[in-house]
């Protein structure tokens, strides 16, 4: 039971950063960038694993590799999108697939069975331990402090970049910080849902929250709540049914998003119908 206790704690801790950064990502419409960063991270994981096994860099945990690769990807995509906006999507696709390919090459070159590869691709929240909890907590604190300290600037830059520049806000700097925070959040969600499913957890709870929010901080608060509920119930469900936890969490999130979106659509449709009849 101690084991599952960590799972819930990591899930809750990850939800906080996930809700905050996810709201920025959804509002600024950069989920595709988040996807690129997430997949590129495999390159860092593969490289770190290779160094561990082949060169005995024992302390070089794959998560550190993920962190470096994620931040690097964020900076490259960020600079391209600031310097050559029209090439942004090409750059993202390139980073996305080249990062993954690099990871695969490293893993192929690493002797021994790479069972934990699966856990990075699809998450392994049921097997997290104390050290994962510490790392998630630490990254979480960094993300939350940055994201809240610069709240006004982030909102302004996301809403109207040009106007913010006229007010002499350093918009490029804040945009890059936002991408860096996205990279940190992706890494801290790795243990929960894995590379392939990270975007779902980053965007779906925030997108659900967006339906009920008039301000970005409301959206963040609700997104944290939804993310926590979905993660916890996903974990609980997968313990009961022996289904993979990451995928369960994501399918639950998708179902919730569908229900809320359709529900909102109907709610908007019906009163109008009644109004017409009256």
């Amino acid at each position: 039971m101690q084991l599952f206790h960590f799972s819930f704690m990591v899930g809750l801790l990850a939800s906080v950063s996930c809700g905050i950064v996810g709201s920025y990502v959804v509002a600024r419409r950069i989920t595709y960038i988040a996807g690129g960063i997430a997949h590129c991270v495999l390159g860092g994981i593969g490289a770190a694993r290779y160094m561990q096994v082949v060169h005995h860099w024992d302390r070089f945990d794959p998560l550190y590799g993920a962190l470096i690769a994620g931040l690097l990807a964020a900076m490259i995509i960020g600079v391209v999108s600031l310097r050559a906006k029209e090439r942004e999507d090409t750059a993202i696709s390139a980073i996305w697939s080249v990062g993954m390919a690099t990871g695969i090459l490293f893993i192929w070159g690493t002797p021994g069975y790479s069972a934990d590869l699966q856990s990075y691709l699809f998450g392994s929240i049921l097997t997290v331990g104390r050290s994962d909890m510490m790392l998630t907590g630490l990254l979480g604190v960094i993300v939350v402090v940055c994201a809240l300290a610069f709240y006004q600037q982030f909102v302004a830059v996301c809403f109207d970049e040009e106007f913010s520049r006229v007010r002499n806000v350093r918009t490029n700097f804040y945009y890059l910080v936002l991408l860096a925070l996205t990279a940190l959040t992706v890494v801290l969600l790795l243990r929960v849902v894995g590379i392939v499913l990270v975007i779902a957890l980053l965007t779906l709870p925030s997108a659900i929250a967006g339906h009920f929010s008039r301000t970005l901080w409301q959206m963040m608060g609700l997104a944290i709540l939804f993310c926590a509920i979905l993660t916890a119930s996903g974990v609980a469900l997968s313990i009961r049914t022996d289904l993979p936890a990451g995928a369960t969490i994501v399918v639950l999130s998708g179902a919730a998003y569908l229900v809320v979106t359709v529900g909102r659509g109907l709610a908007r449709y019906w009163p109008r119908r009644k109004g017409v009849r009256a």
Binding site: A156, E162, R167, R214, M219
Partner: peptide, 28 residues
């Protein structure tokens, strides 16, 4: 500066007062 008003993301969660407050932003 008053930019073209139809170039905004209509899903962006922001209230009137929040938008107006952005006029008080200051790079320093």
């Amino acid at each position: 500066y008053v930019p073209q008003h139809w170039n905004f993301d209509m899903q962006f969660p922001v209230r009137v007062i929040d938008v107006v407050l952005m006029g008080r932003l200051n790079g320093n």
